[in-house]
Computed example of a mutant assay.
Amino acid sequence: MELNRSRQTLWKGLTVFGVGVLPLLYLTSASTVRWIALGLWLVSAGVFVAYQLRPFRFRIAADGLDLRIAGLNRLVAWAEIEAVVLHQPLPSGGRKQRAASVLLVPATASTIDRRLTGRSPVDGRAALVLLDLDQVQQPPGEVAAALAHFGGSRFADVRQRAPERSDAPGAPDMEALSLLSSLTPRVQKAIDSGDASQRQALKAEVDAALAKLSEASAGRDQPRLDGVLKAMSDALATEDEDTKPS
């Protein structure tokens, strides 16, 4: 399998350079300073394009990884590779999740002489960061399948996905639902029993659950279930009022 470089970054960069040059042409007076600034801008654009169009090769095959990336320009045989890791850490600090990265852990007999700036998330060994998968056209799943097929036990897929938030809009609070399913038959039984002490004890339990649920749900952008608990509490209290002598 051969990976193809994505050109999205190139087109986005060219758009930025194209839009950015307009003020230099139309909003500044003709002067030596303007032409110097324009020249520097064009040189920067040229360097950017040259970097994006630099030679690239990433081929996954039975005999190893044929690479022209990360300072390598040769076939790295599987015998030189201790492990290939597909890593995607969970986002932190509210940041967007980064693209998955391909890391290569050289074997003891490897002749790879590049600086190992990465760390394998599997065992912490030094690793060479080959590329981020947002740089190529193939989806991560296809790359993982090819590495698993040809790399065998050397390949480890340790991508981590951010878990779906239980406080996402419209997401049910499973703990609250479990609590309600437990309380509902007990509340109905207490009301039907006519036992005031049983209703009072259960009302105290419902009120405590209501306070805990309201505190846990503070700030969540979702329909809360505390209204049902409040209705239970009111029903138990109403029964108490109905049984009081007039």
Rank of each mutant, 00 (worst) to 15 (best):
V76F: 04
G64W: 01
T238R: 13
F17I: 05
R199Y: 06
K203H: 12
Q138T: 03
W78L: 03
A77G: 10
F56V: 02
G13I: 06
G71W: 03
A235W: 02
P223T: 10
N73E: 09
G94V: 08
A62R: 15
A156P: 01
A208R: 13
D113L: 05
R125M: 09
L213H: 05
S178E: 11
A168G: 14
F56M: 04
L67G: 10
F48N: 02
V33T: 13
A144Y: 01
A145N: 02
D240F: 03
S6K: 11
F150N: 05
D192K: 09
A211C: 03
L177P: 00
V158R: 12
H87D: 15
G194I: 01
L130Y: 06
V143P: 04
L53Q: 12
I69Q: 14
L104H: 11
A168S: 11
Q97F: 06
L177Y: 04
L179C: 00
L103I: 02
A61V: 00
S182P: 00
F155S: 06
K12P: 00
A127G: 10
T108G: 02
A109M: 08
V76P: 05
P106G: 10
I81V: 15
T108V: 13
L210T: 02
Q137C: 09
G18N: 12
F58M: 09
A211H: 07
D226N: 12
V228G: 00
A201M: 03
L27Y: 13
L130F: 10
S110T: 05
L179R: 09
D134K: 07
L40N: 02
L27P: 05
D63I: 10
L25K: 06
S92I: 08
Q8S: 14
F56Y: 08
W41Y: 13
L10W: 13
R165D: 13
P23M: 09
A99N: 04
F17W: 12
S217W: 10
A99I: 01
L67W: 08
A235F: 00
V105P: 06
G151V: 06
V122Y: 06
E142T: 08
S110V: 05
V21I: 13
A204H: 07
R34S: 11
L38W: 04
L180S: 04
S214V: 07
S31F: 04
V16F: 12
G13W: 08
Q137W: 02
A100V: 01
L90R: 09
A79Q: 15
L225F: 05
E80F: 07
E164S: 11
I36Q: 07
